[in-house]
Design a binder for these strands. Sequence first.
DNA 1: GTCAATAATCTTGTATACAAAAATAGTCTT
DNA 2: AAGACTATTTTTGTATACAAGATTATTGAC
Lengths: 218, 218
Amino acid sequence: MEQRRADIIAEALEERIFDGTFSDGDRLDEVRLSEQFGVSRTPLREALQRLARSGLVELIPRRGAFVRQPGPVELMEMFEVMAEIEAVCGRLAALRISDAALQELHDANAKCQAAIDALEPDTYYIENERFHHIIYQQSGNSFLASEAGALHRRLKPFRRQQLRLRGRMDQSMAEHRIIVEALENGQPEAAADALRGHVAIQGEKFHSLMAALKSAAE
Amino acid sequence: MEQRRADIIAEALEERIFDGTFSDGDRLDEVRLSEQFGVSRTPLREALQRLARSGLVELIPRRGAFVRQPGPVELMEMFEVMAEIEAVCGRLAALRISDAALQELHDANAKCQAAIDALEPDTYYIENERFHHIIYQQSGNSFLASEAGALHRRLKPFRRQQLRLRGRMDQSMAEHRIIVEALENGQPEAAADALRGHVAIQGEKFHSLMAALKSAAE
DNA sequence: GTCAATAATCTTGTATACAAAAATAGTCTT
DNA sequence: AAGACTATTTTTGTATACAAGATTATTGAC
């Protein structure tokens, strides 16, 4: 009975979009889904609107809600923007970061390395995420940090896929160390460039992954 | 009866928030507003959720919708992000811009200048907006262009205020010319720096304006 | 058999009705 | 008189009912 119901439904739908239960172009039937979730159409419609806002669903007036998976082009664009935003965070953070935060970055990196050695990709993923969020925060601009976090979250399912690529985690670690070094030495442009490259390469890896999948399917 | 009703209401409420009819912290009563607009609570709640998504309203579960005007700090942060995003657009556009778009930028600038000479601030404002949107588009990244446009729109009411400052329009024109020059010569960093400065100064002007208003009120 | 027009059905958008949680007012106790 | 507890009243969140546009099926003409 709380407002949370729409949130719960939105999350569940999000999950189903990510895991492929719903694929691109599918229409999300309000009555069918509301029955499935055991709620009325009202909170379900609320959830759909929330998904529309985060771009997962397109709401066409009088027609319904359609799943809208970003295509390869749009994904590349989103990764490019993510790279640029992280670069900005890094440039600002190089001037504003606190000693405590630097310590936390070192800590996150150490745990990342430990996760690689222990072959625990999930732990690696979590610590990697923490690493990036610390930099967002240390930009000293909470609006920027919030926007960066939102895009980061939106790209989550796509970034995760290409973590499995051989050697990517080791390479990523090396890049993390260069980033921390630049931040530690207060070098804005170096930090920005390192972060831009670090994120942009994810987009590129994703691109080649997509291309490989596509050619394999033919 | 179209879905548009919620859009219309959202826009109307947005207007009232901007023009000061509703001020920061005000609770937006669903029944009162729905009566006022002559609709039921359903589309009105939809409109509130839309406003919540663009940050103008905070939706507290079981409590209601509260107007949330960004304070000076948050505004400064938003202008900083706008400046950085425009810088990114400029850097990418310097490499990707078309001749036709360059021509359009010249055209927009010419009309801006004409508007200044004719003392038509509204025309100036429209052409200035066009100038910036062309650069967003020419970043060659439609996701970036869309994000830039969204933030631009959100800052609209605050940017407009400080256009009235003496000499700002002339200074702005000079900056526009430098920006076009950098784009024309394909100089990414020069374009980025020029755009960053051009937008950042708006935030700073706004800041001093706010400070002036505040000290005048004491 | 194909196409078009129209009727039936389905689905969305909106209104109203109801339930539960907050806010408020009032009463009782100390 | 102050504070706490309870009852009342608002107000939000959800369900259901209804209206109108969109979709599909059916029928008729060519």
